[in-house]
Write a protein that binds this DNA or RNA. Structure first.
Lengths: 238, 238
DNA sequence: AAGTGGTCTAGACCACAGA
DNA sequence: CTGTGGTCTAGACCACTTT
């Protein structure tokens, strides 16, 4: 398949195949929801064995990039209309909490020292800042300030204030890979209190979250304050 | 390998192999830290192909039951001296927080309605209740009340108050499979306040955690209150 | 009936660790 | 040098879905 010299330096073939397929998906060769060529065909096109293709697809399935269905095919996952896999606020019943977003402001500016550090960019790089609140059962349960590195998002939706990161990433050929959230309890400031309908200094959950791309780049930094009643913050480890 | 009739009803062979190996580990055939027979030998002993054995071991590795090292072998993981994989309290530096446990009380009793519900047993089943506090940097940062179903833990360590669940499970041939934690903010009660060295009603993080075995049984239910300064509660999603 | 992914097998060869 | 897990190949057959 390749020179021996190449093989010694390179990643395993199945990882290379994974990268090739992921890049073709990012590049738009196969849109979200579309089906990939069947495994036999992929193997022929790449000039490798079907077992190696299957191993690459196994990885991509575990990364939530594709879904395989016996008898039907392999499909590119479409997250544009779903919450991302790590939504940790759940309703009393345990379903992911899908609140309604109300945008309070959208601004295009430059990164402060702190924001640049969080987004892993340099100060004064262009960023987009969105402030909004979230409602569920007619109650505002959360305020959030989101920062995005402008450089990664050339294409923006018309109503930027209501963006879903899953949708925004998809529009820009970016695959979401993971997230990290830090939880603490802090007193509500005057602005939070007004939004959440509580007294200032009432303790709320402070949620600081970074979302990463499949390559490890920071896509969004969010600082949120939540005042929960029936909703819960739940984490599962498997 | 088997009758066709058997095959139609059964799980895939590699899952059966996984179950066989897991049961042999639970049963003590291979102790934590020990090495399994090599893949070729396992395949011969089970009368199956090496590829199928490898797929079973792949799963067991992803379940954190074994570790494979090229050139050395496959080893049963030993968690007796480590924190479990889902320790979410981290120091300022980001390392898992390994606090010192100070036991306040150990009692053998029966489950209340609530505890039985949480542990998925019936009320009045025997349980063990351990109350303790945790220190880090000479400061008490957390109080916890842990409930364990007695039935699952026939073997108990001498100093039960200081138990690590990872160790306790291992002693009883149980493999830890996962956990679920619910986070909220609540005011400290008088007892918490005394332990944590804070004023009553100071908001603290309330951590309610269930730990499950690899089979899905509840092994421990813990209700904790944490007052964090430099430590943080962090969750990673991948 | 045709096409897809899923399971299982068999064997060659590579990379790493330790005696 | 020997033994281990890791990679890659090739092919048979099964189970599921759609035509």
């Amino acid at each position: 398949m390749q020179n021996i010299e190449m093989r010694l330096l390179a990643k395993p073939l199945y990882l290379q195949v994974r990268d090739v397929l992921v890049n073709r998906i990012s590049g738009g060769d196969w849109r979200p929801g579309a089906s990939l060529p069947n495994e036999t065909l992929l193997a022929q096109q790449l000039g490798i064995s079907i077992g190696t293709v299957r191993k690459a697809l196994d990885i991509m399935e575990s990364e939530r990039i594709v879904t395989r269905r016996q008898g039907r095919g392999t499909f590119v996952n479409d997250f544009s209309q779903q919450p991302l896999f790590f939504s940790n606020l759940v309703t009393r019943g345990g379903e992911p909490l899908i609140g309604q977003k109300h945008c309070k402001s959208v601004s295009h500016g430059v990164a402060s020292e702190e924001t640049a550090f969080q987004l892993d960019i340099v100060p004064n790089d262009a960023i987009i800042t969105v402030k909004r609140v979230r409602y569920h059962d007619k109650r505002c349960y959360m305020t959030e300030t989101c920062s995005l590195p402008s450089k990664k998002f050339a294409h923006l939706p018309e109503k930027l204030g209501d963006y879903r990161l899953s949708e925004l990433a998809q529009m820009n050929g970016i695959i979401v890979g993971g997230a990290e959230e830090s939880v603490s309890t802090q007193p509500a400031n005057a602005s939070d209190a007004g939004d959440l309908g509580i007294e200032p200094n009432t303790p709320v959950l402070a949620l600081e979250r970074k979302i990463f791309s499949e390559r490890g780049d920071v896509l969004e930094w969010r600082s949120g304050r939540a005042f929960l009643r029936h909703e819960r913050y739940v984490v599962r480890f498997v």
